[in-house]
Amino acid sequence: MTAAALIAVLFGMLLLLIRAIAGPTLYDRVLAVNSFGTKTVLALGLLGFVMGRPQFLDIAILYALINFVATIAILKFFRYRSFQVPLVRRGQGGGNG
């Protein structure tokens, strides 16, 4: 049962990879990478149960945290063109993106 789920998750990874490579717009790729991170977490958890070592669940949870940070970094980068949001808006010329 878990093996079947693992196969399904690996197939989903393949589909997401196609979207990440082909994805015409930027947001397709961001979403693909984010979902790929989720699939990574799921695959790790299932892999732990398939190998008979459920301790892998802890690692999977840590991966989820890292994945979240990376996605936030990417989206923040494309919203503000910088990793640190300026607290004071500069003059009218910039930062209206």
Partner: peptide, 29 residues
């Protein structure tokens, strides 16, 4: 991310975790 899963699959858990933190998290930024 894929190589991190692969490292865990071949029982190199610490390497996999470093790969996920540095490779997927830090180096993307």
């Amino acid at each position: 991310l894929v190589s991190a899963v692969w490292y865990v699959a071949v029982d190199a858990v610490d390497v996999g975790f470093t790969e996920a933190a540095v490779g997927a998290g830090m180096s993307t930024a």
